[in-house]
């Protein structure tokens, strides 16, 4: 907190440097400079910056997709199945929604390390490891919220589907499809969690320039090199990107829901 409180009153020096790691030099830094930095990043179409944005998006979207493919059916199953210990599992998964990214990252790190059980894969410090870590972070959100949504929908559809002989597992495709607009919001929540986290991807990805560096780890790095304007600029860019994706998804889902009469 103190660090950021200080930003507003600091007078940034006009200093040049010739580092190749950071090509986005910013010389005039004042209160508006983070926004200018963000504009320069977005409008400048710097290939390094675009690579980072592209990697951020592809890692996070892949993680959300994987979590969706696993979590949607699993959440639906949990909504419909009745077995001893079900409540305990629901509570556990709800709790895992708050799993600290650093902890998830550390566990994946230990698993994927060459000295760990999955070391032979050679995935540590690669985008694959980042995808795995983010999938694990998103999965509980998808399962927990899907379970709630499908349980509510099942209460409504139960008699009709039972009458048609669609009970248990056979009802899952119908329920998932009919809940698609609510589930889109679930995936957005997952996307938000994954795109915002830094702890897990930093640990398992290693923040390697040009290879595993994503927006959040760049922000952490620029903060540590003291380029706070650039760090904030990156933050604004990330926020804008997240906002855009949410707006598109929200709009599409709203229109779709209205057309399907699901709202």
């Amino acid at each position: 907190m103190r660090l950021y409180a200080k930003i507003t009153i600091l007078n940034f020096d006009h200093r040049k440097h010739t580092s190749d790691v950071v090509n986005w030099n910013l010389y005039n830094l004042d209160a508006a400079s983070p926004f200018r930095a963000a504009m320069q990043l977005i409008l400048g179409l710097d290939p390094q910056f675009l690579q980072i944005v592209g990697l951020s998006l592809s890692v996070t979207l892949t993680a959300v997709l994987i979590a969706a493919v696993i979590g949607l059916p699993l959440g639906a199953l949990l909504a419909l199945a009745r077995f001893p210990g079900r409540s305990a599992i629901i509570v556990l998964i709800n709790a895992l929604m708050g799993l600290p990214p650093v902890v998830a990252g550390l566990v994946i790190f230990l698993l994927l390390s060459r000295s760990g059980p999955l070391g032979a894969l050679g995935w540590l410090f690669t985008p694959k490891a980042m995808i795995v870590a983010q999938s694990i972070l998103v999965l509980p959100i998808v399962i927990a919220l899907t379970r709630q949504i499908i349980e509510d929908l099942w209460a409504e559809y139960c008699e009709h589907l039972t009458s048609l002989g669609q009970t248990g597992v056979r009802a899952i495709p119908t329920l998932l499809w009919d809940a698609r607009f609510s589930l889109a919001t679930v995936l957005l929540a997952g996307f938000g969690r994954a795109s915002a986290e830094v702890g897990a991807v930093l640990i398992v990805g290693g923040n390697i320039a040009g290879y595993t560096r994503v927006m959040t780890t760049s922000i952490a790095l620029e903060t540590s090199t003291g380029d706070l304007a650039l760090a904030l600029g990156l933050g604004i860019t990330l926020l804008a990107l997240t906002l855009a994706i949410n707006a598109i998804a929200f709009g599409a889902s709203r229109i779709g829901a209205r057309l399907a009469g699901a709202s």
Binding site: L164, G165, T174
Partner: peptide, 19 residues
């Protein structure tokens, strides 16, 4: 109980579900 799809898709769904 109306599924969240078109009228015709509701028929299709029932027919398919009932085999």
């Amino acid at each position: 109980v109306m599924l969240r799809r078109s009228a015709r898709a509701n028929l299709i769904h029932a027919l398919r579900a009932a085999g």
